[in-house]
């Protein structure tokens, strides 16, 4: 897979950054709008997948990328678990306790700890989906 024409390459180079930003927006506004960690993470992964498809598999050193994304996946989900467990070790021994103050509904900094959860879910989903995609691609090229 050598990649596509120069037009596609240039357009995806421009677009993928915007798609990445849009994914970040969805993740950060997860507690206000439909979407959240999973949907945003999928979009973020999409921006990377688009680059790989357009530029061909020589563009990245895929094995290294896959290892990194697996590492990110593990780290993301582990941080999520730590956050959830955090409440257990603090004053109120409750699993998945909303530790932070609620704030006003409708503002970006509200809903307590839920936006933080969303960020970690976003990292984890993006890394996981990218790992799945790269695993398929690497497996195809191993012939």
């Amino acid at each position: 897979m050598k990649g596509m024409t120069i037009i596609v390459k240039n357009v995806t180079a421009l677009l993928s950054g915007l798609i990445f930003l849009y994914g970040c927006y969805i993740v950060l506004h997860g507690h206000l709008t439909p979407g959240g960690g999973f949907a945003g993470g999928i979009i973020i992964a999409g921006s990377f997948i688009l680059l790989v498809i357009a530029n061909g598999i020589q563009y990245f050193r895929l094995n290294k990328e896959k290892e990194e994304s697996s590492l990110f996946e593990g780290a993301g989900i582990f941080c999520f678990l730590l956050l959830a467990t955090g409440g257990l070790f603090l004053a109120v021994p409750v699993f998945f306790k909303n530790l932070l103050p609620g704030g006003t509904p409708g503002e970006l900094l509200s809903a307590g700890i839920i936006p933080v959860y969303n960020i970690f879910i976003g990292i984890e989903v993006a890394a996981a989906l990218l790992s799945i995609f790269l695993a398929f691609v690497i497996f195809k090229t191993e012939d």
């Binding site: 697996s70 593990g74 582990f78 678990l81 959830a84 467990t85 699993f95």
Partner: peptide, 13 residues
């Protein structure tokens, strides 16, 4: 639930 999940995600790291 926490202990096995934590171990599962700690091992790859």
């Amino acid at each position: 639930v926490i202990i096995p999940l934590g171990i599962a995600f700690l091992i790859p790291l």
